[in-house]
Design a binder for these strands. Structure first.
Lengths: 187, 187
DNA sequence: GTTATATACTCACTAAGTGAGTATATCAGA
DNA sequence: TCTGATATACTCACTTAGTGAGTATATAAC
């Protein structure tokens, strides 16, 4: 209950990238880590040990269950399954939005697209629209924040301005990315 | 020796924001935290406890020294001084560059400007130039990375493209910010 | 036959970040 | 005058992110 699946500000975790891979089929920690690195290596930088530690947490939380596969001589391997709870959490996360941080958009939103394309390609268009709206309303919020800032707040203003411009950029990037998706999804 | 003052990827810390304030005069943890929040609150989100924990580390590392100020009745207050080592580290950091991550630029670079303006305003122009170069070479690196990416790497490409566009934005932002600085530094 | 590589995982560590708690002083309003 | 809010100044316990190195076995390559 005390679980706030919310990350601390600035903290994004590839938790869902790992969990989501199990939606299709059970797998080993080893494979999950490799898959994330192969398909989303520019999105998340995930070390092997970090992958295992996140998977451990997912298990403790009850989002995945472990099937010990005993082997003669060999140490036993652990096959990970997504639990019903994990499935629910994953699907919820898929529909959630990534907020207005450019980092979150680059990491979470792109990861969502990855899974939507795998499992629910029909939802992609909506995801783009939703993200555009989110970005737009964040821009508005930041602009008003910036306007309220006293004139002497030079550095805070610089920072805010940068975030605003970055988000405007994101709107363009969303349009361009979506176009390249049309090619994939409607050939 | 094992100190890599380097942050893990994606991890930026307001360590230098706190340390740098002591360059001018010694102060209490309490004041340092308030000052960072007041002047750089949009740049760093720093809780009080986090501030104290960073200051503790700075002390253990030998960058600051603690002067216990005993008070009758009251619990003793700790006045923090910058040590020679701390001074050296801070000045080195001031001249270093913030790399090519947009986050690092928004946080570290802006913080550098803040201190340059306080202590060495004549260095500001150079800092802008240095940062522009850095950003430029990072853009080049990311573009070649993106070009080398196999066509099927849709999501990695999306992520890279976003970073590239963000950095191009940064170049504009640097120009605009510097203009607003001219007003301050050469009135 | 050895050496490199792929498979599959564990552990110990540093550091970021939160949230709540402690203790005192001071000042403004009922 | 007492009361309660606010400012000062700090501590502690906790979760999570992230690194780096170590362990152990199978298999293919030279």
């Amino acid at each position: 209950m005390k679980r706030s699946q919310a990350h601390y500000i600035g903290t994004l975790s590839p938790e869902m990238a790992l969990l989501g891979l199990l939606y299709g089929a059970p797998g080993h920690g080893y494979d999950l880590h490799r898959k994330v690195n192969a398909d989303l290596g520019q999105v998340w930088h995930l070390s092997q040990s970090q992958a295992y530690s996140i998977l451990k947490r997912l298990e403790v939380q009850g989002d995945v269950s472990v099937e010990e596969i005993l082997q003669e001589k060999l140490p036993s391997r652990q096959l990970l399954h997504m639990t019903l709870q994990g499935r629910r959490r994953f699907l919820e996360w898929l529909d959630a939005n990534s907020g207005g941080s450019t980092r979150a958009i680059r990491m979470e939103f792109v990861t969502r697209l990855y899974f939507l394309n795998l499992y629910f390609p029909e939802k992609i268009t909506h995801a783009f629209e939703q993200q555009r709206e989110e970005a737009g309303s964040h821009i508005a919020r930041l602009i008003s924040l910036c306007d309220e800032l006293p004139t002497d707040q030079v550095y805070n203003r610089m920072s805010l301005k940068m975030r605003i411009e970055q988000l405007k950029m994101v709107l363009k990037w969303l349009d361009e990315s979506q176009e390249s998706f049309q090619v994939i999804t409607k050939p």
